[in-house]
Amino acid sequence: MALVKSGMLWRQSTILKRWKKNWFDLWLDGILVYYEDENHRQLEDSIHLRINCINIKAGYECIEGLPPEQSSRECMIIIYLRDGSKLALCADSSDDALAWKLAFLETKYSPVTQYDPADDHYQTVAPNAFNTIYVNPRNCGYPQSGSGMTHVWVHENPFYNTGGQIALGMLAGAVTGTVLRSLMWSPCWL
C-alpha cells in the first residue's frame, strides 16, 4: 500500500491523559499506525479508519478536552472510534491539523484499487485487505507461466505478530508463579 501522509503529532494517552509526541503513518487503505519515534522501532498501535472510525473533528470543532500547553485548540484533531473511545491528536499548526483531517477523510471514504495486469483494469481491494487471498487463473503477463497455472496472492498484515509476544508472556507468567509459590511456602517449612 502507498503512504498518504506521515509526520509527528501530539497524542493524548488514554489513561493518564498526558500529551506525548508520536510518529504517525497513514496508509492508503485507511490504516493509521503510530510509533514511539520516527525510526519505526516501537509500534504503539494501529487503527483501521475505514472500519473503526465514526467521526473526525479538527480545530474549533473539538470542544472536548484541552490541547497541550504550547498549542491552541485550532491545532487539535479528535478521531471518534466505534468502541466509544477517541483518539485526541494535536498538530504543530492549524494548517497541518486541517491537512491531517483531509487525509483521514480521504483514506476513510475513497476506495482502494489494485491494478490487474492480466485484464488491464483496476479491482477494488477489500476494506481489510490483509489476510485476503486473490486467485487469478491467468498468467498475469509472465511468459514463463503456462496457460493452466493459477497464481495466488496472500496479503498479510505486517504488524500482526502477537504469537511471540503471547509465548513470552506465558513464559514470564509461569516463571513469576513459580517464584511466588516458592517464596510463599518457604516460611512454612522452616
Rank of each mutant, 00 (worst) to 15 (best):
44 E>A: 11
185 W>I: 00
164 G>M: 06
180 L>W: 13
55 N>Q: 14
45 D>K: 10
40 H>N: 10
107 T>Y: 02
75 C>M: 11
157 N>T: 02
89 L>Y: 01
189 W>P: 00
145 S>T: 13
73 R>I: 09
30 G>S: 02
69 E>D: 13
181 R>F: 14
43 L>H: 06
58 A>P: 05
71 S>H: 13
138 R>H: 10
9 L>H: 00
139 N>D: 15
71 S>M: 10
10 W>I: 00
163 G>C: 05
54 I>V: 14
127 P>R: 02
141 G>W: 00
91 A>Q: 02
34 Y>A: 05
117 P>L: 09
128 N>G: 03
155 H>D: 14
127 P>S: 08
127 P>F: 02
149 M>F: 07
68 P>M: 13
123 Q>H: 13
111 P>T: 12
110 S>C: 10
150 T>A: 09
188 C>W: 04
92 D>I: 01
121 H>D: 06
157 N>F: 11
52 N>D: 15
21 K>I: 04
62 C>M: 03
167 A>S: 14
60 Y>W: 04
107 T>N: 05
28 L>H: 08
150 T>Y: 09
39 N>W: 00
161 N>G: 10
51 I>P: 04
57 K>M: 12
43 L>A: 04
154 V>K: 15
99 A>F: 03
98 L>S: 11
181 R>M: 15
99 A>D: 13
184 M>N: 14
125 V>R: 09
148 G>V: 03
58 A>K: 01
58 A>I: 04
105 L>E: 14
75 C>W: 03
94 S>Q: 12
125 V>G: 07
173 G>Y: 06
168 L>P: 04
167 A>F: 11
157 N>Q: 06
162 T>I: 11
93 S>R: 13
28 L>Y: 07
81 L>W: 08
54 I>Y: 06
172 A>M: 15
79 I>A: 09
187 P>T: 01
183 L>V: 02
118 A>T: 06
83 D>L: 09
12 Q>C: 03
42 Q>I: 09
45 D>F: 04
70 Q>S: 14
163 G>Y: 08
47 I>H: 03
71 S>Y: 05
7 G>D: 06
99 A>V: 05
189 W>G: 02
153 W>K: 11
162 T>F: 03
18 R>G: 01
11 R>G: 02
16 L>G: 05
164 G>T: 04
83 D>R: 09
135 V>H: 13
19 W>S: 02
24 F>N: 03
142 Y>S: 13
14 T>Y: 06
126 A>R: 10
112 V>T: 07
67 P>D: 12
169 G>F: 05
110 S>E: 05
110 S>A: 10
14 T>M: 08
44 E>V: 12
38 E>D: 15
56 I>Q: 08
182 S>Y: 09
138 R>N: 13
111 P>H: 10
75 C>A: 13
119 D>R: 12
157 N>P: 04
80 Y>C: 08
26 L>Q: 11
17 K>S: 00
23 W>C: 03
18 R>K: 11
136 N>E: 12
